[in-house]
Nucleic acid binder design. Structure first.
Lengths: 188, 188
DNA sequence: CTGTCATTTCAGAAATTTCTGAAACGTCGA
DNA sequence: TCGACGTTTCAGAAATTTCTGAAATGACAG
């Protein structure tokens, strides 16, 4: 690996974090490299930068594309594929949330739904099902919230984030306004 | 493995999801088993239920304890250690958020901070540092928000979740109220 | 067509992670 | 102190994941 020290440190860190993240070292490194690179890179450049095999880079890029975290960028008069990461960090955040939900949450939700449909055959199963129900309800609530906020434009989202818990205090102080608003809407 | 079908399906699912989650199969299975069990289980019972080695269970329990996802529960007149999961799903959610932040976010944040301190030695490094800065700013913002909301009591949190994106509309319609409130507070 | 350049696939090698059995360790009652 | 019972540790075995080189595939210019 032959990179400027700052870039190298960043790339190595992402490689190591990769395993805690469910992606492998090379994939993490490729992502980090593309993220800080001023312009799109082709596979050969990545091979040189990271010192891994060509085929490994090919597989890594494939995986990053499956995550929507690397996008092919065509360079005129160049047959080789070049890749970048989505530029905007908010966009990246959205992609990560979406993909992780798809991979980590949705399968569990569907298994829970299925198990909750079945008739319990014993007291043990009845209890287990009740617990699964609690888990299911929580995840449903979280994903409903997520479905809500993911639609927000970035600016609104940032605003909401910035407010943080203060929103609660706000709710308390404006409870009346809200209920008035609700009453008004009911009339219409 | 010899469990009621419902429980078995749940346990197996958690085992498989384990790998996407950065925990191993056995750990996932132990957690799932404890979660649906009506009362605390000792290591031997887990061995029987899951059909894995005693030592594997011991290590799994150790890891779950490190995550605060399994808690030892002493049973009177019994020398063996018994374990449960924290009962409240909201509590579990908090623990997961906290631990994942600690393992997945904080290390990156500290690496980014360190790299941003250094003087760039080239144009490439300057650009890379700018990108790292964007990432750092986003993560800071997210963790600040998280620090805010994690302090909320569960009921408030659920309320906030339930509001979802509607909070934004609320903000828009109450902008005046808020700024009035702020002006008032400044006076005091 | 054919030859060149680029990418992908894939079987096996290498590395890493997980799991096990055996032994070490700890605690308690007699 | 001893022995019964329970837990933890750990070196090596087993399983899984990652990585590589070689071959297959594909796209295109001449």
């Amino acid at each position: 690996m032959n990179l400027p020290p700052l870039v190298q440190a960043f790339v190595l860190h992402f490689g190591e974090m990769g395993s805690r993240w469910g992606i492998n070292r090379t994939v993490g490194q490729i992502y980090a490299l593309l993220y800080v690179s001023p312009e799109p890179l082709n596979a050969e450049q990545i091979v040189e930068a990271l010192g891994v095999s060509r085929s490994n880079v090919s597989m890594g890029l494939k995986e990053l594309q499956a995550w929507n975290l690397a996008v092919p960028k065509h360079i005129p008069d160049d047959r080789r594929d070049h890749y970048t990461t989505p530029g905007d960090v908010w966009e990246i955040l959205r992609i990560l949330a979406e993909e992780r939900k798809k991979r980590e949450v949705d399968p569990t939700l569907s298994v829970l739904r299925e198990l909750l449909m079945q008739a319990p055959a014993s007291e043990a199963e009845r209890h287990a099902q009740a617990r699964m129900g609690e888990m299911h309800a929580l995840i449903e609530q979280l994903t409903a919230w997520y479905d809500d906020v993911r639609r927000l434009e970035t600016e609104r989202l940032a605003q909401l984030l910035h407010l943080g818990a203060r929103v609660v205090r706000l709710l308390e102080t404006t409870d009346k306004v809200v209920s008035l608003g609700r009453a008004k809407r009911r009339k219409e």
